[in-house]
Design a protein around this nucleic acid. Structure first.
Lengths: 136, 136
DNA sequence: TATTTGCACTTGCAAAATGCAAGCAAATTT
DNA sequence: AAATTTGCTTGCATTTTGCAAGTGCAAATA
């Protein structure tokens, strides 16, 4: 896991953490599902390799975007959740969706989310943030 | 240049195009400077390698985010500019800056931009978009 | 006019990251 | 007690990145 900053630019510093083809997909899964197990991430359509998943989860945890928690039903399972720092990427995620809505064909469920967003973006972010952070 | 989509997810499709450590820095340079030559990109703090720069510029051009134009003063130079599709990433770029402002130390010039953004985000995007698209 | 410099790349090669398949230990289920 | 699930790790081939040097054309300089 490379750890050196390339410059003082905020865009560059951000990309140093989650600027790759997989990290934002992990964050996406957590934003839509609220919490996921290791196996849940592996089930996503993009089919991330297990070693890459492990290295990304470590990177995101090390940088404070996600946290691990015990699964209430089983010691064999681990729950991953977004921290405040991770949840704060919600506006970025929403803007990417809006951009993609203009230039790609979105799945219906994602279209539905954007309808909600367009009604009142601030409120959507406020509510979704609260939902994601509920229960430590 | 890999060209196959990993899934129908808009986040994934977006990352397929600009989800790497360099593409958004190129777009950043164009958003702040309006237009750049090949050499201008090489001067940025992050010190991109020339072959990577060439491959990213091709990727971004192929996907319609940037375009090449003749330099008005010299046939030896090439000007790169954002297309509408590229300029439309401005809200994403702004949200990344806002996120980074919360978790990193920003350079003063970037702080100043955020002050403007916070006064009226919509207006800032409208004005900046117009400025970037002015003159073919 | 000849020559050097500037500009936008390309090429070759080493190093690092990615992707795939298999393996593994602890917990859970049968 | 044996088989399965879960969250990883390991080994190795393939791909991408990074660095340095080189190329070809335009423009400036001598």
């Amino acid at each position: 896991m490379d750890t050196k900053k390339r410059s003082d630019c905020p865009i560059s510093s951000s990309l140093d953490i989650w600027g790759d083809k997989w990290s934002l997909l992990i964050i996406r899964d957590l934003m839509f599902a609220k919490q996921c197990t290791y196996g849940d991430f592996l089930k996503s359509d993009e089919k991330i390799a297990t070693n890459i998943l492990a290295s990304r989860l470590l990177m995101l945890e090390t940088n404070g975007l996600i946290s691990k928690q015990d699964h209430p039903e089983s010691k064999a399972k681990v729950l991953y959740k977004l921290t405040q720092k991770g949840v704060d990427l919600l506006p970025v995620m929403i803007e990417i969706n809006i951009w993609a809505d203009k230039y790609f064909t979105l799945p219906l469920e994602r279209k539905a989310m954007l309808v909600e967003v367009k009604k009142d973006k601030e409120a959507f972010i406020r509510n979704q943030t609260a939902a994601l952070l509920k229960n430590g």
